[in-house]
Design a protein around this nucleic acid. Structure first.
Length: 288
DNA sequence: TGGCAGGGGTTGA
DNA sequence: TCAACCCCTGCC
C-alpha cells in the first residue's frame, strides 16, 4: 500500500462513495482494506470514510477539481425529488442513497466505453489497468495515469491488441487518432447542446448511440442522456412493461424520455445499480 | 480440465 | 437487419 500525503479531511452531505464508485460509471477505482484508491485525471487519489468523515489523500489536485469530479455541488435531493413516485425507484433510492453521477475526464470516458462493448465491469476495469500500465505516465510508486489520446494514437493498434482489447483495439486506435488530430474536439463538445454533442461524439470510431450517451452522462454532466444497454433494457421491460408483449428498443427510449422527468440519466443510474446488485441476484428477480 | 455459450456494442453490407 | 468482431467468465 502506497500512501499519498493526507491533505484534506472534509465532510460532504448526500454522498455515498461506495455506491458511486461501484455503480459502473468509473473503472479506475479499486477498493482495499484502507478504502478506495484511484485516479482523477492525472492525479492519484485515496479516499476512505470513518465516523461520517471523509479522509482524502491526494497529490496536488485542487479542491475545485475534487468537487467537480464527485459533483459535490449538485443538489442531489432536488434532483431525486423530480423522479416519478413508483415502487422500483423508491427501492432503488433506498438501496443506494447518496449515489452521485461523476464528471470524469472526457477522453478517458470515451476510451473506457469504447472498450466496454460486450464486456462486463470487471473486464473493463482490467482493460483500464492494462492501458495505464502499458501506455500511461508513471506517478512515482502509485502507478500510471490514463494515457492521453496522443499516447494511445502513438502506441498503435497492435499495442492495444496486446492489452487484450480484441476488435475494440481498432476502434480505440482510430478514435484516438480522430481526437489527437483534432478531427473531433472533446473540449468543443462541452459547449454544444446535448443532441449536437451526441452526433459529434458518434463521429468517433467505436462510439454508437449507447456509448455516446454514457459519455454525455458520465463526462459532460448531461442528465438528460439515457444510455440503453442490455441491463437497462432488461430493467425497463421487467419493471415498467408487461412481459407478455414485445417492446422495441425505440419504445423503451421514448418511454424513458417522457417518464423519468428532467434527469432520466440519474434515474437510470439508480435503477441500474440497484437492479444489478440486488434484484438480479435475488430469487424473486424473475417475478418482477 | 476442456469445451461451450454468452456478455453493459459497433460496424458495414 | 444481421453477421462479424476478441476475450473472458461461468457452467457443465
Amino acid at each position: 500500500m502506497v500512501y499519498l500525503p493526507k491533505k484534506r479531511v472534509r465532510v460532504v452531505a448526500d454522498f455515498n462513495l461506495d455506491a458511486t464508485l461501484r455503480s459502473g460509471q468509473a473503472f479506475c477505482w479499486r477498493h482495499g482494506s484502507h478504502g478506495w484508491s484511484g485516479w482523477i485525471g492525472d492525479y492519484p487519489v485515496q479516499i476512505s470514510c470513518r465516523d461520517d468523515e471523509w479522509r482524502i489523500r491526494h497529490d496536488g489536485i485542487s479542491e475545485a477539481a475534487l468537487a467537480h469530479y464527485f459533483q459535490w455541488q449538485v443538489p442531489l435531493p432536488e434532483i431525486l425529488s423530480t423522479f416519478p413516485d413508483d415502487l422500483a425507484l423508491r427501492e432503488a433510492l433506498a438501496f443506494a442513497p447518496g449515489l452521485r453521477l461523476l464528471r470524469q475526464p472526457p477522453w478517458e470516458t470515451v476510451a473506457n466505453f469504447i472498450c466496454s462493448a460486450q464486456k462486463q465491469i470487471v473486464q473493463i476495469e482490467q482493460i483500464n489497468t492494462r492501458l495505464r500500465d502499458t501506455l500511461g505516465v508513471p506517478h512515482g510508486s502509485f502507478g500510471r495515469s490514463f494515457p492521453s489520446a496522443e499516447q494511445v494514437y502513438d502506441a498503435g493498434e497492435q499495442t492495444l491488441r496486446a492489452c487484450r482489447l480484441g476488435y475494440r483495439a481498432r476502434h480505440l486506435a482510430e478514435a484516438s487518432r480522430q481526437v489527437a488530430m483534432g478531427e473531433v474536439s472533446l473540449e468543443a463538445i462541452e459547449t454544444l447542446p446535448t443532441a449536437e454533442a451526441r452526433i459529434e461524439l458518434m463521429r468517433l470510431r467505436g462510439v454508437g448511440e449507447k456509448v455516446a450517451n454514457c459519455v454525455l452522462l458520465f463526462a459532460y454532466g448531461r442528465h438528460e442522456a439515457f444510455p440503453v444497454d442490455v441491463w437497462v433494457e432488461r430493467i425497463l421491460r421487467d419493471l415498467y412493461f408487461s412481459k407478455k408483449r414485445k417492446v422495441t428498443s425505440a419504445r423503451l427510449r421514448d418511454f424513458a424520455a417522457s417518464y423519468f422527468g428532467p434527469h432520466p440519466g440519474y434515474a437510470q443510474q439508480y435503477l441500474f445499480h440497484w437492479y444489478r446488485l440486488k434484484k438480479a441476484s435475488s430469487p424473486q428477480a424473475s417475478e418482477g
